[in-house]
Design a protein around this nucleic acid. Structure first.
Lengths: 303, 303
DNA sequence: CTTAACAATTTGTCCTAGACAAACGCTGCG
DNA sequence: CGCAGCGTTTGTCTAGGACAAATTGTTAAG
């Protein structure tokens, strides 16, 4: 198998760097410099794509592209995360961290039944609330950190996400239904496909007696407005992962404020909003327990 | 609330039409012609965005952009689907169709608990196998058709997908685990986010005693190869929805054949492969029961 | 020494306008 | 009726220029 080459659209797909950025980097920094096919179109060799993926990963961790591109590949691999990413040590006591590492190890051994069983056990032992806050949330951060430093493969992360999604949804399904209050529409904006944060929030909110309407991810803004109206939502809750382009968030929230019907509040949560400036009409919930707190406040405000 | 306006990136997000296409249409067809903001950048009024969304929907149904743009908005709304889409009448007896319509009505009334309860009931009554084949599959086609003709909102389709995903995952989770055979890795290629087909296949295959490893959707090709190796997969099963660009499928499958380890077969299913030409090294499964049949063949081939 | 305001740099996205190939559908021929 | 050939339609690529927002560095004041 001779190493395949990628056109610019394929590279955009695989790296997440837009065509504009790829062309601009070539002009400005002299990297990547792809081959050209018969039509004069860029044709990126696999090696350059690999380097671009590495650079993108480090950018998401807080490095700047100009520096990264000027760095040799070997040095790149050795670069530590710049933006503070929680490591095992940050997750409280060493014992807890060790347990997380053990769970992560199950994923890295591709032991599907083992992971499922271990998680089910923890869920039963801790109860849903503590399970979400003390197991799933730190484990997700843990996996994210491992992904940034390259010690977890993409497909391992997908497997983790898929299995964890199932666990959470199953747990949510066992909660009592019926007409509750407030009614919360949960979703994310286009280009934000991460769903775990949304599910964690849903679990906690449903546990507190809210009626959650899960719409999945990547909902066009206009549709979010329509959904809020159709479901007579008291609250629209969005989730932004740390990987979501920060600069777009204020604009998106501003637009949504205009679109949403009068009766609906707007909540924005997830580690993506940690650095977003406070703004009118939007409740920011950078951490998970902020959601629970906000729910309590919402209730006390109208009792 | 004065009608908000969208920059070109927002329109790309909300319509799925790339910036290049938007600019090209403006040049060629004279629509859309957005306003310009202070910096000379395009600023699309909500009305034009709405029309673009309508046009995009009809394009996905098989119409051609040139014709659509030349058509008045009123005529557009009245356009029937061009590509053959199964309607209620195609789903067998009138009674069955009526039941599907009833389920769809629950979604359109945004009655979450009602829908969940009705589906749970059908699952219990029909058993997982018939539930997948006779309820979920036709209902999914039904929703797809309704979406094309505009009688279902995007957020309603998302709600349907989300609730149905939960049902299926829950049902799959109750199946017995343990080490079974063959080992099947289930996923989809980048730009193919539809997961329902994958879940239906997983349900049927797991029911037949296969060991399914669900990796979610949108896995880069290289990673699919790595996952197959790491899990020592007997089979890699991909799902292509009808909306996936048909022309890309043969190339993708060809590439994957080169990437996959020797011991792994490649299966490609979903209504997206219905019109794909047979090719070496790939098993095509346009319909759901083809998967069950292929599994039986795989077993008899090595007994 | 720290903080605040201002200046310089970095970086992404938008712009115009041209070219071309792949897909589509039409026409005419067997 | 089916199929080959040809024009048309349509999306994506290319080039280089411009600008604004974000980030960093520097200077001045408390």
């Amino acid at each position: 198998m001779n190493s395949p080459s990628f056109n610019i659209a394929a590279v955009e797909r695989d790296t997440g760097l837009s065509k504009d950025v790829l062309r601009m980097w070539e002009r400005r920094y002299g990297f990547p410099i792809p081959d050209r096919n018969g039509n004069g179109e860029r044709s990126y060799p696999a090696e350059q794509v690999e380097r671009l993926r590495l650079i993108k990963r480090l950018m998401d961790a807080g490095h700047r592209p100009g520096k990264l591109i000027a760095t040799s590949t070997e040095e790149l691999s050795a670069l530590a995360p710049r933006r503070s990413v929680p490591t095992a040590a940050d997750n409280g006591a060493g014992e807890a961290a060790a347990e997380l590492t053990k769970l992560l190890a199950l994923i890295k051994q591709h032991d599907v039944p083992g992971y499922q069983q271990a998680m089910q056990q923890r869920l039963a032992r801790q109860g849903l609330h503590h399970f979400v806050q003390d197991t799933i949330a730190p484990l997700t951060r843990h996996v994210g950190a491992a992904w940034v430093e390259g010690s977890v493969e993409v497909f391992e992360e997908h497997l983790f996400t898929e299995l964890t999604k199932r666990l959470l949804r199953q747990a949510i399904a066992t909660l009592p239904g019926g007409s509750r209050s407030p009614r919360i529409v949960l979703t994310s904006v286009p280009d934000e496909p991460h769903v775990l944060g949304l599910l964690m929030a849903e679990a906690l909110l449903a546990l507190e007696g809210a009626e959650c309407i899960p719409l999945g991810t990547q909902m066009p803004l206009v549709e979010i407005g329509r959904a809020a109206e159709a479901h007579r939502a008291d609250i629209v809750a969005l989730s932004f992962s740390a990987a979501f382009p920060q600069r777009q968030i204020p604009g998106l929230l501003q637009q949504l404020c205009l679109i949403l019907p009068a009766g609906s509040e707007l909540w924005a949560g997830g580690s993506g909003v940690a650095r977003v400036a406070k703004m009118d009409g939007v409740t920011l919930l950078p951490a998970l327990d902020d959601a629970v707190r906000a729910l309590a406040e919402w209730r006390s405000a109208r009792s």
